[in-house]
Design a protein around this nucleic acid. Structure first.
Length: 556
RNA sequence: GCCCCCGUAGCUCAGUGGAUAGAGCAUUGGAUUCCUAAUCCAUGUGCGCAAGUUCGAUUCUUGCCGGGGGUACCA
């Protein structure tokens, strides 16, 4: 709709120029916006204001010239007004809106999608938690955001791959092995001194007990070096499987699980280091190898190989991000906790150093989640192993409520997650508010079907659309019409919460309409028209919820 | 010290280079013989402070104040 308005304005401007009403045919980029107030029409443009300097005319005069030259070639404009400092306001006829419904039915599951991504390949990497313990609430937010951003980009015409990077190499895995091995020794009656920097959680004991059952008599376990290795491999596998399962219960499915260790096995890490050394991007100082990230905009150079010969996490990260682009992705998106923000510059640096373009790399930094119960903070400590896991949360409040709350706010903002509130089946809980729309509509459609109102004519619903005259009905169609633009904006900004806001707005308008007007009435044609309208609402609610990974129930 | 995020209604948060800044919750009062009341309707003196850019700033820039997070040869 916006594009149509834009075309009308531009054609009007060209015509005005030819007629000599405008001095220039240089037309700057304009905004078409939906004014906040109905009195300002369905759409308005700032074209006259942004053109003032090139036309060297007062905005009001420009607006007059354009309005006088505009052709409403599709017959959708009821009237136009020039207002305020030079806005041109467009008031559309009701007829302009009805075709939206037909469009929705025609596209159905595809309504709202676009090809603006032009099939470009984009990878979204998220969660990527170390397999050293269960996922917690912060991972949940990252998972919901990453998954949803992937869905939205895919809907916006990108070819999306969702990936989980498994940190299955390095010190933390060894620490995991040591933790399990020590607990194992505890079980077999040995006296052990359990260090503070080992993983404290009960799940370590459980894994140790399992391992004891399975191969407690394996002599290799007696030897510390071999034992830790065996424990590490067993525990990491076990924990990773649990993570996979928890994510699956959370409705998150990855296309690829990428192993950090594989970057070492394939020599990718060392080859990259060698290559960078040859190009003087890596140098030696104090017995360590340093990457010249400062040359690429970082505050200081960073160590990739420590003086003890061990690589840092950053070393494999360089190789990993090179690998991503080598796999043919046009665009790479990482979802990180905001506490890792300091890493952005050095990854950008490594991508540029490797000959890539960091402008094709985006990081979504997700702020922290405060877990509350009834308004009171829930005490959590990873160190002591006392924390609420993602699984606990999904078990308690359900996948839909959890995801919807995670996606309710901008990732730039901290998020309060109240377990009691998320569980409540009341209006305080936004997920039910939106899902209820879908269930309500389904209920009406079932009733209409039972009463024989919907029959063969169903295919021709839209032919009664012009019966929709109530302001609430036009408003609903306007909201439905904006969905494709909402998806585009959400995809462009990588902001899934825009979909959330859209859903709340649509749900609110629907509930208001429902309470004011009966869908099934004595007037058969009006009934058909309204069934048509609510069916369209149902499609859009379902499509939008789907982008967030939240189900659209038929009944509640 | 430096870096990132935030500061909008009593609370939790949306939003925007433009014309009268919104929603939910909370408060108070109302609505159901009728398609699900998990709903609706009514009820509001708010953009942290200051300067700058602009025809126009809550939005962009800078400084300050306040809150959170980061700032390792950890991940």
């Amino acid at each position: 709709m916006k594009n149509t308005i834009k075309k009308i304005i531009l054609k009007g401007a060209e015509k005005a120029f030819k007629k000599g009403l405008l001095k220039s045919d240089n037309f700057p980029e304009m905004e078409i916006e939906e004014p906040k107030h109905d009195a300002h029409g369905d759409f308005s443009t700032n074209f006259a204001m942004v053109s003032a300097s090139v036309q060297k005319m007062a905005p009001g005069k420009i607006a007059e010239a354009i309005v006088a030259s505009m052709d409403d070639f599709q017959g959708i404009i009821d009237k136009t007004e020039i207002a305020g400092p030079g806005f041109i306001n467009f008031f559309l006829t009701d007829d302009a809106w009805y075709p939206v419904l037909e469009d929705i039915f025609k596209k159905d599951f595809q309504y709202g999608s676009s090809d603006s991504g032009k099939g470009r390949k984009v990878q979204v990497e998220f969660v990527s938690a170390n397999p050293t313990g269960p996922l917690h609430i912060g991972h949940g937010r990252g998972a919901a955001i990453g998954d949803s951003v992937g869905n939205i980009l895919s809907f916006a015409g990108y070819e999306v791959e969702k990936e989980y990077y498994i940190n299955d190499s390095g010190r933390q895995i060894r620490t995991l092995g040591l933790s399990v091995w020590l607990r194992l020794n505890e079980i077999t009656g040995k006296k052990v001194d359990f260090p503070d920097d080992c993983y404290q959680g009960d799940y370590i004991r459980e894994i140790a007990a399992e391992l004891n059952e399975l191969k407690g008599d394996d002599p290799a376990l007696q030897n510390k070096d071999d034992g830790v290795l065996i424990c590490a491999r067993y525990a990491a596998d076990k924990i990773l499987n649990n993570i996979k399962q928890d994510l699956s219960c959370f409705g998150v499915k990855f296309d690829k699980w990428f192993s950090e260790q594989s970057l070492y096995d394939s020599k990718k890490v060392w080859n990259t280091i060698e290559d960078f050394k040859n190009r003087d991007l890596i140098y030696e100082k104090d017995g360590a190898l340093w990457f010249r990230t400062e040359k690429f905009g970082d505050e200081k150079d960073r160590v990739v190989v420590r003086n003890n010969g061990l690589t840092t996490y950053f070393a494999s990260d360089i190789a990993y991000h090179m690998e991503k682009f080598e796999r043919g992705f046009d665009r790479v998106i990482d979802v990180w906790g905001a506490d890792h923000h300091g890493y952005v510059k050095r990854i950008n640096a490594s991508i540029d150093a490797a000959g890539g373009k960091s402008e094709n790399f985006d990081v979504i930094l997700v702020q922290l989640v405060n877990l509350l119960r009834g308004g009171e903070p829930v005490a959590m400590s990873t160190r002591s192993g006392q924390f609420v896991t993602l699984k606990d949360i999904v078990d308690e409040v359900g996948k839909d409520a959890a995801r919807f709350i995670f996606l309710s706010r901008s990732s730039d903002s901290g998020l309060d997650f109240d377990l009691e509130l998320a569980k409540q089946q009341t209006s305080e809980n936004p997920v039910y508010y939106v899902q209820y729309v879908h269930a309500r509509i389904t209920g009406i459609l079932i009733k209409a079907d039972r009463e024989g109102i919907i029959n063969d004519a169903a295919l021709n619903w839209t032919c009664y659309a012009s019966k929709l005259k109530e302001p609430e009905e036009i408003k609903l169609i306007r909201i439905l019409a904006s969905f494709p633009e909402v998806v585009e904006k959400s995809a462009r900004d990588l902001h899934p919460h825009i979909i959330f806001t859209f859903l709340m707005n649509l749900a609110s308008s629907f509930h208001g309409y429902y309470n004011r007007h009966k869908v099934i009435t004595e007037d058969r044609e009006l009934t058909m028209a309204r069934l048509c309208l609510i069916s369209a609402v149902k499609i859009v609610i379902r499509n939008a919820l789907c982008l967030l990974g939240v189900s659209a129930p038929e009944r509640m």
